[in-house]
């Protein structure tokens, strides 16, 4: 199958609502009629407030959840298929691995090959080469034999990126990779992503709520707050659009921007999802807890 004919990711009129989690709970709409494409070998930044549906979007692209409406395609395949073929690498937001495990850096990176190996197969020459190369690219080769629990936060993150790329994916999904990283660190991270992209021909999707970080990491940006607000090069990202995406959170940063509460209705209208920059009131955008 020639995946080159397809965009890396195609989201077509996708909506997702989390079911109510108890008698006294309401279903929570996380995404409403989202449509966009990510071309191969581009770096898309997805920017949005907490609860804006970013994690939901990632779960849809990874095929962990299935949309209520619409279609998600990854390289023209269903997300589950794309994942099973090892086309997708993923860096989680929080590293929840058990760091007490008696396991070395190299062994952790080797997990990236797991979807490529049948249960009875041992790591072959190809696998070992990919693992080495992945560690080289993120500069953790000298840590290969270290115990995973002995690393610093930054080193650990690079090891997890090495794990994500060890399976030679074509798409790399990064969930909030620069939380708590200073500006210099963000720049370095951006450079590293650029290196990975050019070396491996990756398509990259970075999800973040950090406006400063995104410029260093992405060449296209989608703003997500339940619906899609903007989708273009970072230069087009004006304070006005950001203010609308983040509701009044941003107002303090960019000055006194008034947000019309009644424009929240426009979020429901699919015709406004792209480039319309429709505003949502605070209740709409910021309190849609990102459901686990």
């Amino acid at each position: 199958m020639n995946s080159d004919q397809h965009p890396a990711v195609e989201i077509d009129h996708v909506s997702y609502t989390y079911p109510a989690s108890g008698l006294d709970a309401q279903p929570v709409s996380a995404l409403q009629d989202i449509s966009f494409k990510v071309d191969e070998k581009t770096k898309l930044g997805v920017l949005g407030p907490n609860g804006g549906g970013k994690s939901t979007l990632i779960k849809l692209i990874l095929g962990i959840i299935v949309p209520n409406q619409g279609k998600v395609k990854v390289f023209g395949l269903s997300p589950t298929k794309a994942r099973a073929q090892g086309l997708v690498g993923y860096l989680p937001q929080r590293i929840e691995s058990d760091l007490d495990w008696p396991i070395s850096v190299e062994q952790v990176v080797a997990f990236g090959r797991i979807s490529k190996l049948k249960p009875w197969q041992r790591l072959g020459k190809n696998d070992l080469q990919s693992i080495q190369h992945a560690m080289e690219l993120v500069d953790v080769l000298d840590l290969a034999n270290r115990h995973i629990g002995s690393l610093s936060g930054g080193q650990l993150q690079r090891v997890m990126i090495a794990r994500a790329i060890a399976g030679n994916p074509k798409l790399l999904v990064l969930d909030e990779p620069t939380v708590g990283v200073d500006i210099a660190g963000q720049q370095r991270f951006g450079k590293m992503i650029e290196t990975l992209q050019s070396e491996l021909g990756l398509t990259v999707i970075v999800v973040t709520h950090d406006m400063r970080a995104i410029a260093a990491m992405a060449d296209r940006i989608a703003c997500l707050s339940r619906s899609l607000h903007f989708h273009d090069a970072p230069q087009g990202l004006t304070p006005g659009v950001l203010a609308q995406v983040f509701a009044h959170d941003v107002a303090g940063v960019f000055g006194d921007i008034h947000i019309d509460a009644h424009r929240a209705d426009e979020c429901e209208d699919p015709s406004h999802t792209i480039r319309s920059g429709c505003g949502c009131d605070e209740h709409d955008c910021s309190d849609q807890g990102e459901n686990k």
Binding site: R83, G86, Y90, E96, S97, I103, I114, P119
Partner: peptide, 22 residues
Amino acid sequence: WFMRRRFIFWAFDEPVCDAYGI
């Protein structure tokens, strides 16, 4: 023994298992 790799990955990092096709 047959499933060791899968079990080790699962026990080490269950939250990302699904994203890695396990």
